[in-house]
Simulated assay, not measured.
Amino acid sequence: MLSWLGRIAVACWRPVRRYARMNKDNIIEDDSDSTIPDTLLWCKDLQKHSYGDFSFAVVQANEIIEDHSQVETGRDATFVGVYDGHGGPEASRYISDHLFLHLMRLVRENGSISEDILRSAFCATEDGFLTLVRRTCGIKPLIAAIGSCCIVGVIWKGTLYVANLGDSRAVIGSLSRSNKIVAEQLTKDHNASMEEVRQELRSSHPDDSHIVVMKHGVWRIKGIIQVSRSIGDAYLKQPEFSLDPSFPRFHLSEPIRRPVLTAVPSIYTRILQPNDKFLIFASDGLWEHLTNQEAADIVYNNPRAGVAKKVLTTALSVAARKREMRYDDLKKVEKGVRRYFHDDITVVVIFIDHELVGKKTCVPELSVRGFIDTVGPSNFEILQGIDANARSFI
């Protein structure tokens, strides 16, 4: 029997033109409609939230999944969180366990949801994780090099709040006057590949000529990391967490004088309009293979049930074709090895049914965690009774 390496080699010898299919309108078609299951893929085809439905899908590529994610549903609000870890799962798992709870505590204390409240929830999560790093780095020094991107969306009484660190992305699909869906990116990618990010780093570190370095054809901060904002990555934020030369991948030539990365999120607020039809929250693994518009077109042109999985498997088909494979061949590749073909990917699609906004809908208050497949009670009941006018606080 062929080893997995042999199977990959055989698959890669197949000509790519057999699988690179485009229809007459130049829309990407995926080749995932087969009976062979992808054992590394998890999904919730369709669930209810206070403003409609949501679809949720995650695929694992790393030996231990580093994407953690959640959807919290309440009577008057919906929360989405996608946490794309790097260096290990500890930071993304910590965010999943704490950020939403910090947000609910702050809302209860202040009687409002606002941009400032979201920033404070991120700050409390960062402080908590750095405290964990401080307590455990003597036993596990590499925890100082573990971090996570973080994107959060909150819909409350018709207003959308999005807070972002890193290069996960939120995209909204809106219907144009010509009845076509238009994708709009709501977040900025905090990634050194962006000229704007490099200029921001150079401006804030004028005395450091190596703040951004081109390494192996990729722009990296201090020659190490691509994202400029994250939870964690303590060794790039405080000198006390610097790693010694025994960890060359994370070793800095000289101690940092001030934080190289930040955990201050960029925040976007929008009062949802009748032409706003859905939101897509996804880790950067999706956007490596699909454009914003391609993902929005898939959501708009397919049934709601299972649409997050449809978006994800289309991206996997594209990733496979880049290696001159079919998605069916990719399914045979084991976790860990899959990382050479694609990253862990999380996709959450939130549909917005405007006729439900402001109505007392019967939606269970649930917490749905991606991939680990847990569903339990949420803590959104504390929002009941908060004055809708509180959003004018922003």
Rank of each mutant, 00 (worst) to 15 (best):
D116F: 02
Y83E: 15
I146E: 12
K140Q: 13
I117H: 07
A144S: 14
S92E: 10
A121R: 09
G74I: 00
S148F: 05
G147L: 03
S92L: 06
A121D: 11
D97N: 07
Q70W: 03
G81P: 15
D76Y: 15
N110Q: 12
V133D: 02
F122M: 08
G88F: 06
T78K: 00
Y83F: 15
R135G: 09
D127Q: 15
H98S: 13
E126L: 08
F79K: 06
A77Y: 02
V80H: 03
D76T: 12
F79I: 02
T78H: 07
I117L: 13
H98Q: 14
D116P: 00
F79W: 05
L132V: 04
A121Q: 06
L130H: 14
L130P: 00
L101T: 05
G88S: 02
G85N: 10
G147K: 00
G138I: 09
S92G: 09
L106E: 11
S96Y: 12
T131W: 08
D97V: 00
F100R: 02
D116M: 03
A121N: 10
S120T: 10
L118K: 01
S112P: 02
E109W: 10
Y83M: 13
Q70M: 11
P89K: 07
D67L: 11
V71R: 02
E126F: 08
G147F: 01
T125R: 00
G88M: 03
E126H: 12
R135P: 03
E126V: 15
H98Y: 03
D84P: 13
S114D: 07
F100D: 04
